[in-house]
Design a binder for these strands. Structure first.
Lengths: 349, 349
DNA sequence: TTATACATAGAAAGCGCTTGCTGTACGGCT
DNA sequence: AGCCGTACAGCAAGCGCTTTCTATGTATAA
């Protein structure tokens, strides 16, 4: 029913081996023969059987990309950049590779399951994006899995994620701590002394690092933090909205709200507006990531730009072996403070 | 080096056939034997070889999702919804399936290439999202490809895309024309008579349908359209910014700008603000899609909500055969007008 | 007790491709 | 003329799994 290599071989009057070599182009075939084969391929509408090739050659052209939430541009941008570099159609590289984008939803077990699935497919490479989950058992399981993947020849690259020692994985880590520090430094420089902080989910490295940066800035300026000033939530708009209301209830005198990311910041802005406060006159708001929409907020968000596309592209190239891994297998990617309208001096300064 | 089925069989003291049956669970195996096998699997850290399974069983657990731009939430939301339904880890369905998200970048040839790649992998199903490209040659090529996929047993679902007759593909089509019509009706109802329109790229069905809806509304109200009032651009913010400036240059008396989608609308808002106009006092702005950030624009965008997540989920279920296809293989998904602050009455009404 | 059905496990034949090795023909060299 | 190197092309052995068919042991019926 389906046409196979042998059918093509028969029609072109050559052996299956020759057809295979024409299609893979890694062995000399006389021009005339090649023509005949290509013609037969075309006439029969032949399409190689991927699984069979993969089995015989013990390689695959699948590349896995793990993301927390594909609907979030933060991940979409990185995934797109990775994909553009791994050499899928339209990419710069040669062989055609298929990107497998896996949506973990931030769930530990799904992260692991997807990795197994990718291992099962004998993926050529895997890129993991986003922060890691801070759970000892899970981290051990992940490390074991990554090690096994590496052993099986799958290149593993972490993009925007802390290093995973002894796994053979290359890490491109975002300097969340530094960015958080710089952002809060800026606010303090403007005169703020009472700053609310809307953190992400508790058990994530990204959350912790950004918060640590924030606190480091406070400490450096001798500002004693009030425990009521920190609220944890999810990395989305709604969470930002609710958290801001909570923050305001706890301490209505806050002059600034620092959000875990831009989506949260947008929610914060909405909450502030809905409660009759003006930004930045009454309360300043800061985000993180600098996603495309952040500049369209009114006022535009002051935030820390993370070079998501660049980092993703680099991760893709490293995964494909087209760029050397950084020394030590670890590189830190810094963010850049984007000063815009959503942060100003507090009243009376 | 790598552990195979045979290794597991040897350790569990059973035949490879039995191990396979335990792992696939589609043949009676005595409980005691199953235990032994599972134990061996665990001890050896065995992971099935996907390509080999696929080859032997002539089936695969890959599902392809074609999107124009993975970094755009419009597609991200649909892709995420499809994925949540196809039964990957964490999904509702049983067998574990891998979603392959393919970024076509809107390029015709990449669309085709990805389809071939998916065909090569013997994908279980393919979901194509986003508008189709209006080029006769390309459409014929696509139709042929889709037909061949269907023949090979791959289920094909179009999500937010016009039907592809005679291909066996199920289509969940967005009512872009109706939505566009309703939106412009609304603006006219507010008193607008001079409306600029920022359309998407020329050769896309989505662009054409939305524009047709807009024009139908104008015609229905006896408003003669000025050719200068329509500008084509891309589906992004920057394009919206530039197009708005162009529109304003052509006719500074416009009282409303209708954008091809929300991103374009955001760009339009920025351009209007930068040129010193207030929204909606001086000029009203309308978008399309109702992406999450649209409500955070200031003023919030009046737009047409497309149920992206619902449509994607349904497409996913149909692709998995878990929901019946609509009668005739075609269903129209309607948008909903969201009236918000970015549209108001024009001056002097 | 013997015949018969049933439950379970194994043997073996592929699935469609890749690739190391083995021809074979031809041209150039001595 | 004889030899050898080169350039192709083919043979055939798998790659690791699934699945049909067959074998064996056990329970039930006659």
């Amino acid at each position: 029913m389906t046409v196979t290599l042998a059918d093509v071989a028969a029609r072109a009057q050559v052996s299956p081996a020759t057809v295979s070599r024409v299609l893979n182009g890694n062995y000399p075939v006389a021009a005339a023969t090649r023509e005949r084969v290509l013609k037969a391929v075309d006439e029969l509408d032949y399409v190689l059987n991927g699984p069979a090739s993969a089995l015989a050659a013990a390689t695959s052209d699948l590349v896995g990309i793990l993301v927390n939430d594909i609907a979030d541009p933060f991940f979409g941008i990185m995934a797109g950049a990775v994909q553009s570099e791994i050499g899928g159609p339209g990419g710069r590289a040669g062989g055609e590779r298929l990107a497998v984008v896996c949506n973990t939803g931030g769930a530990p077990e799904r992260e692991l399951t997807y990795l197994t699935l990718l291992q099962r497919q004998r993926a050529a490479a895997v890129v993991l994006t986003g922060g890691a989950i801070e759970d000892a058992a899970h981290q051990a399981a992940m490390a074991a899995k990554l090690r096994r993947l590496a052993e099986a020849g799958t290149r593993v690259v972490l993009c925007g994620r802390p290093p995973a020692p002894e796994t053979g994985a290359v890490a491109l880590t975002f300097d969340n701590r530094g960015g958080g520090r710089e952002l809060t430094d800026h606010l303090i420089g403007l005169g703020h002394r009472r700053l609310g902080y809307i953190a992400g989910p508790q058990e994530r490295t990204t959350t912790r690092h950004r918060l640590e940066g924030h606190r480091a800035a406070l400490a450096a300026h001798g500002i004693e933090e009030d425990a009521r000033w920190t609220v944890h939530g999810r990395y989305d708009r709604q969470s930002g909205y609710e958290a801001t209301l909570e923050l305001l209830r706890r301490d209505p005198s806050l002059t600034a709200v620092v959000a875990a990311n831009d989506s949260v910041a947008l929610g914060a802005c909405a909450a502030l507006r809905d409660s009759g406060r003006r930004i930045p006159d009454d309360v300043s708001v800061a985000g993180f990531d600098d996603l495309p929409f952040s500049i369209d907020a009114v006022p535009a968000l002051t935030t820390v730009r993370l070079p998501l596309a660049e980092a993703g592209a680099r991760a893709g190239r490293i995964a494909m072996g087209r760029e050397e891994a950084p020394i030590g297998g670890i590189a830190t990617v810094r963010g850049e403070l984007m000063v815009r309208g959503s942060c100003g001096q507090p009243r009376g300064v």
